[in-house]
Write a protein that binds this DNA or RNA. Structure first.
Lengths: 184, 184
DNA sequence: TGTACATCAGTGAACGCGCGTTCACTGATGTAC
DNA sequence: TGTACATCAGTGAACGCGCGTTCACTGATGTAC
């Protein structure tokens, strides 16, 4: 049946939000189109009213998640304490244990490298994060701010990847703590 | 037909080597059992003479790749130059562009976190790499060697993940160079 | 304002394909005598 | 040493299932008059 036009855009956003969460939790191949649609209270049929294909949804949902993450990062004030709190939150066990709500880079970065449609959006997201870090992070000197930002972002992403891969909770926590202490 | 018993073990190893390369290139779901077997010159039938399931192959091929990588790392002499060369090689564009021959952590780390069978093997691999770095890396002082090793490994893994995800060759190279300069 | 009709997001069955897995069969190897 | 037979890694067709995608149909909404 026909539905109020106002709901269509909202449903589109709900699909993106739910899809990006599931993809981060299980990877692109670990989630079915039907499951995404069911999670938004619909059947799988109208999926193709919203997206040309699953690949198109993957690309759009990643852009959605990146935009949301950049919004969170921009909301952080420029005070050193707030920036440090952001990094500490990134390296928290909570972030490790809830990948569906977290950064797409540790959970989907490798798959992005193999999925051409997703790369442009993620590239500008990475560039945006490096720029923000370079601008706002309380680095000691003026020199090498950008280089230090890239190092820190790499270590943050790698640490979450390793902390999630590793089986031993002690080692996992040690990895997060090691990188966390870099900004203490 | 029956084949010389001596060939069986060698075929088993060939399957592991080829599978681990393809998995690193395309992810666990991006490679089919038939493709792996064809790549070793066989049809897909005898796969189940060697492995209980695709999941079992995934776990075993990852352990194989980790063992091989630890062998390479152990072959590095303890001289500071050789250790630095190892890290520089890890952060090279060559490694970025040939994931099938490279470290499993940037290419498969996220999937490992979701595949319980693979986690024990990868956990001991991560522990082994941290131990080697702690022991041999030419850190300036005696304090914090282990913490610095974890930071460096995290940055190396994260940098390769990002360098592969990113679309822009300039940014990609900048990421690798930033972490490379950390040990210069 | 009320009525007839066109619209189109939704439903849910069906399709086609690919992949993991199974299995009846083959035939050179290794063994028993 | 030669011969008959059991073994078992291989072949390749087939199975079953799940998933992405399609489509005939539904019926409340929005529109024309």
């Amino acid at each position: 049946m026909r539905y109020p036009a106002s709901e269509t855009a909202e449903k589109h956003t709900r699909i993106l939000a739910h899809a990006s969460r599931l993809f981060r939790e299980r990877g692109f191949d670990g989630v079915t189109v039907a499951e995404i649609m069911n999670g938004t209270g619909l059947t799988h049929g109208p999926f193709y009213n919203h997206f040309a294909s699953k690949d198109a949804l993957i690309a759009e949902s990643l852009s959605y998640a990146c935009a949301e993450a950049m919004g969170d990062l921009s909301a952080v004030q420029q005070s050193p304490e707030d920036v440090r709190a952001y990094v500490a939150g990134y390296l928290s066990t909570r972030h490790r244990d809830t990948p569906g709500e977290g950064c797409v880079l540790p959970s989907l970065g490798a798959e992005v490298g193999r999925a051409p449609l997703t790369r442009p959006g993620v590239t500008s997201h990475v560039r945006g994060m490096v720029d923000k870090f370079t601008e706002y992070f309380p680095w000691p000197g003026k020199r090498n701010r950008r280089r230090n930002s890239i190092r820190l972002l790499s270590a943050m992403v790698g640490a979450q990847l390793l902390a999630r891969a590793v089986d031993d909770p002690v080692l996992s926590e040690e990895i997060l703590a090691a990188v966390r202490s870099e900004i203490a």
